[in-house]
Design a protein around this nucleic acid. Structure first.
Lengths: 146, 146
DNA sequence: GCAAAATTTAGGATTAACCAAACATTTTTA
DNA sequence: TAAAAATGTTTGGTTAATCCTAAATTTTGC
């Protein structure tokens, strides 16, 4: 196995945002879009994109924008899996609506272990869609479907 | 209401540790004990205790040790409530053993909203003991028992 | 009362997130 | 197509959280 690639919490948010934009919605990811979404100065975005590029999680082209690398995609999917499994839990177990489930999941997804997520996943028999119908990526360690 | 007293994640750990030591086990809390428990240099402990003292969460006596203030106790109880409610969830819902439940709870307790914790609490009908039989403090906003 | 143990102080280091202002590049448009 | 507008980057900061070592101080145990 390679060296463990770690993203900070904020970097994680950038990765999942980029995944949704780029992969799920086929849109280009620009500095401005990120800056607006995260309500930060564009300079901050540039800095974080450069860090993510160093970590080989995104491919970054100055003045153009950034795209996830293969490793970035994997990382984003892992985070989105956590997020979406938590959403399932909150909706099914606590009867939260989808929006609130998303909010609460965002607060803790990054910090949840894969183990915990897999335990929840098993309990709900490996759901493959989150409450807003987005796909839940499977984890081989979870013995889920396909 | 007063100004919101915020503790950082690490400070939160110190508060709950101190609660367990001081209140639940009647032991004095010294710099050395904290340094050993958190595996850090004693100088680091001193620094954090001073910060907590500034925030009026602990009363700190140089060369002697520290004790939680009333505000510190309240804060610690809030954190312990989160921790223990999560433990209940993990044991009952995921069939984790008490130790693993504690471990996983520690990773996320700080980041969980009171709202989320209360929703879990309600679902389990306001448990007042965690899996290792420690008390779960009630939250008026949760409409629990005493 | 003195040496050993415990603790604090002083002075740093690192990392994550931010920002403003100046500068560079790209895009738009007249 | 050239300037203006929009966008993006660089430079040079800031703050906060955690952590450290070494020297100095205080307490404690014998």
């Amino acid at each position: 196995m390679g060296v463990k690639i770690s993203a900070t919490p904020k970097e994680g948010r950038y990765l999942t945002f980029m995944y949704r934009q780029q992969i799920e919605e086929g849109r280009r990811v620009t500095t401005t879009i990120l800056a607006k979404s995260f309500k930060v100065n564009p300079a901050t975005v540039t800095e974080i994109l450069q860090k993510l590029a160093e970590k080989k999680l995104v491919e970054y082209t100055r003045y153009y924008g950034a795209g996830l690398t293969e490793r970035g995609v994997v990382k984003a999917q892992k985070l989105l899996r956590k997020h979406r499994i938590l959403e399932v839990l909150f909706v099914k177990f606590l009867r939260y609506d989808a929006e609130k489930a998303c909010e609460e999941a965002s607060k803790i997804d990054y910090y949840c272990s894969e183990d915990l997520i897999n335990a929840i996943c098993r309990t709900y028999e490996h759901p493959n869609r989150c409450p807003c119908n987005k796909i839940i990526f499977s984890d081989p360690k979870c013995r889920g479907q396909q």
